[in-house]
Design a protein around this nucleic acid. Structure first.
Length: 744
DNA sequence: GAAAACACTTAGTATTACTCAA
DNA sequence: TTGAGTAATACTAAGTGTTTTC
């Protein structure tokens, strides 16, 4: 967790911040020019009392808008209006038909029958269920619908493919493109807090039971061999497996581990093993290393077998049926026992994460679904049917006492809808951000301390994309902060620094104990306020002592429906991407150069959001490799040019067709090599700039995918160059709906 | 109204799978 | 065919923000 920025990186960072600041100024300017707009906005949002009825009406209206149509998608929705009309009437028909509360489908698509996926497994289940009179009706109707309309994730299964082809052949060939994906974004959403109407799954996959190590792999205490009881041995292996890791050198880790380990020992063991330093795990560690080596060098067939088994488990447990669609589950495996690996200086690192048993598990599914079977001889803690939540399985973890969940994959409807909604909220912020900014600037002058604090904090959240900063229980987690929980010790004020006025230096550990370091010039008022907030305080006192996240969010909620601190991060990230893309993309550039521009825009966002990574272990080496490739390519280019030159000379003398052709082909060769060289150089630049910056987090969580999709469409870049397969699945909605002129 | 519980998103790292040059 | 390097995926910790409880 270094987080130490080099000078260079600081500059990059500052550059982006300055950019940001300039843009902000620009916006302010615009703001002045549009006083009328401002006035309108003001009346729209009010400025003191937000509880007046017109305001409420407005908010309700906004809410309504969000529910049914999102500004951006007007055009898009229009496209599908017709279709939906059709579907809706069907919907109603079906609703009337099924009123017994089970998985009645929202509607049925008028898809050709041959387009369905009928897994052999379903057939089986269906047959089994037919034996049960009570359920026959439910099941047959459910499956009738499912068969008509199941979202098919993977058609690769041979049987299915075969079946499908048969049917397709029997009917018209028109529907050749088979992978018809379910476009949930073309459908109505639930608006009443209901997350689903039907949910069925097979429950979690438990961690494999402990396999004792062979008796020749020994554990030594104080130099003497000691056979451990199975319970103590298992925990010992957890430590042994981590022996190479830095964790095991840390005092807290060792202390916590030892304490928990002793709890698992028999009383004899406990009496004997009193000092971790005297424990010798090396044989165990070697054994596991050898095992993983063996796994690597397994025969192809064996590897294939394992792969097939994993695939089987995935097929059985990795999917659920939610509202007539087969959806992928994200984490269907229960976390195996082990030693807790908290990040940063976590006071609980090294503690034993205990094994989760069926008795710890709460299953969530619909009443009319087939409840998953617990492993033989066990039972679930509870089975509930709560369709106001999205999780399938939950358990309480023993380190922090928090609840863990099994939920759906990001490609699922339930996650996608939420994600889409998130960006729509951010776009609504775009519409009123000028007003909000004007307001908090005004609040810097407030007579009330709490309001000034709120306004300065909000300024940081907006300008620097800081996280909200909830309070944390002391001693339970690593000491990290966000905006509202900043302490006096985390900032330094410089009336003047390196030629700039009113500079604030931030230095603190944020989420995941990643260091945030930044020097920013701020407005005089902010600076003066900060001086005031810090007066007569100790370094470990709260900077904003009259503020917390719930006060801040309550305030934001009044400014805009659905507005919270984190919306600013989404908004600023997405708007920055859009602006940077506009700024950096050059029409004349070729595709690799354009992609470099994209990555740079993405990088600007990652820097803004402080998304860091440890430089890859192989970084230097891979850079060297790339450099030697570049050198080789340069040599090749020189050769090609030489050859072209001589060919030209040759052609001048001979003046025949053959030599002219030779010149042409040499020219082309030069061009080709030049292109290759450029590609490599671009790659090197990209990689170098990316050394400590993680692009993935912002790409996945902060950047409205429609911006990227639109950019791809506009410049003719294949979307595969920007999003890999998983990302394309997650953003299928955006890829489908964004046109090249999409504006965030 | 504060604390605790809950639900869900965001985050970096470890592991695995894939790719491509030798 | 192999294995090094890289990309993708899996994993799970650590946040945010809402709801429930006391």
């Amino acid at each position: 967790m270094s987080g130490d920025h080099s000078h260079n990186e600081d500059q990059v960072m500052l550059k982006v911040f300055y950019n940001h600041k300039d843009k902000y100024k620009e916006r302010e300017h615009k703001h002045k020019d549009h006083k009328k707009d401002k006035e309108r906005e003001k009346s729209k949002y009010g400025n003191s009392d937000h509880k007046d009825s017109s305001d409420k009406k407005h908010r309700d209206k906004e809410k309504e808008k969000m529910k049914h149509k999102d500004g951006s998608t007007d055009k898009y929705k229009e496209k599908h209006k017709e279709k939906r009309k059709e579907e809706k009437s069907l919907d109603e028909r079906i609703k009337k038909e099924k009123e017994n509360g089970f998985a009645s489908p929202p509607y049925m698509k008028s898809e050709p029958e041959h387009d369905f996926y009928h897994s052999p497994k379903h057939e089986k289940t269906l047959k089994r269920e037919r034996d049960d009179d009570n359920e026959v009706q439910n099941w047959s109707s459910v499956f009738a619908v499912i068969s008509l309309y199941v979202f098919v994730k993977d058609f690769k299964s041979k049987k299915t493919k075969h079946k499908k082809e048969e049917v397709t052949d029997g009917k018209k060939k028109a529907k050749k493109e088979p992978e018809e994906k379910w476009k949930w974004w073309e459908e109505e959403r639930y608006t009443d807090g209901v997350k689903w109407k039907f949910l069925e799954h097979k429950g979690p996959v438990f961690a494999p039971p402990y396999e004792p190590i062979p008796s020749n792999v020994k554990f030594y205490y104080d130099g003497k061999h000691m056979k451990l009881s199975p319970g103590a041995e298992e925990v010992a292996t957890f430590f042994a497996k981590m022996l190479e890791h830095e964790y095991t050198t840390k005092d807290i880790f060792r202390k916590n581990f030892f304490k928990d380990w002793r709890k698992e020992m028999t009383s004899e063991e406990r009496a004997k093993i009193t000092d971790l330093k005297k424990c010798d795990f090396t044989e165990m560690s070697e054994y596991f290393k050898a095992q993983s080596e063996a796994r690597k060098s397994m025969s192809k067939e064996d590897k294939q077998k394992i792969k097939e088994e994993n695939e089987r488990i995935l097929q059985e447990y990795g999917f659920c049926i939610m509202d007539n669609h087969k959806e992928r589950i994200a984490n269907f495996r229960i976390e195996p026992p082990g030693l807790f690996r908290g990040r940063g200086d976590h006071p609980k690192m090294g503690m034993l994460k205990r094994r989760i048993r069926p008795e710890d598990i709460i299953i969530n599914c619909s009443k009319d679904s087939k409840v998953p079977e617990p492993p033989r001889g066990t039972k679930w803690k509870e089975v509930r049917h709560d369709n106001k939540v999205t999780w399938l399985v939950s358990w309480t973890e023993n380190i922090q006492g928090s609840i863990k969940y099994i939920m759906l994959n990001p490609s699922s409807r339930i996650k996608g809808e939420k994600d889409w909604q998130k960006y729509e909220t951010a776009r609504r912020l775009k519409k009123c951000v000028d007003h909000i900014r004007a307001q908090y600037r005004d609040d810097w002058k407030s007579k009330e301390m709490r309001i000034r604090q709120r306004a300065v904090a909000l300024y940081f959240i907006d300008k620097l994309a800081l996280r909200a900063g909830n309070e944390k229980e002391e001693g339970e987690t690593a000491d990290t902060v966000g905006c509202c929980s900043l302490r006096v010790e985390h900032i330094k004020l410089y009336p003047e620094n390196e030629g700039q006025e009113y500079v604030v230096e931030f230095d603190f550990l944020g989420k995941d104990s990643i260091r945030y370091y930044n020097k920013v010039p701020v407005e005089k008022r902010v600076f003066k306020n900060l001086q005031l907030f810090m007066e007569n305080k100790e370094p470990d006192d709260d900077l904003f002592d009259r503020l917390n996240t719930s006060i801040l969010n309550k305030h934001l909620q009044e400014l805009m429906d659905g507005l919270t601190a984190k919306v600013f991060r989404t908004y600023n990230a997405s708007i920055t991407l859009q602006q940077q893309l506009k700024e950096l993309t050059t029409a004349e550039d070729n595709i690799p150069a354009k992609i470099l521009s994209y990555n740079r825009a993405n990088r600007a966002v990652a820097i803004l959001c402080n998304h860091q990574r440890a430089p890859p272990k192989t970084f230097e080496k891979s850079m060297q490799n790339l450099q030697s490739k570049i050198d080789a390519k340069r040599d090749q280019l020189a050769d090609a040019k030489r050859e072209l030159k001589s060919a030209k000379a040759d052609a001048k003398v001979r003046k025949d067709e053959k030599s002219k052709k030779a010149v042409e082909s040499k020219k082309k060769a030069v061009q080709r090599v030049e292109e290759q060289l450029m590609k490599l150089e671009v790659q090197a630049t990209d990689r170098e700039e990316n050394k400590q910056i993680a692009l993935g987090t912002s790409k996945l969580n902060y950047l409205d995918p429609r911006i990227s999709v639109a950019w791809c469409k506009k410049w003719g870049i294949p979307v595969e160059k920007i999003y890999n397969k998983t990302q394309r699945e997650k953003f299928a909605w955006a890829i489908d709906m964004a046109d090249d002129d999409y504006e965030f």
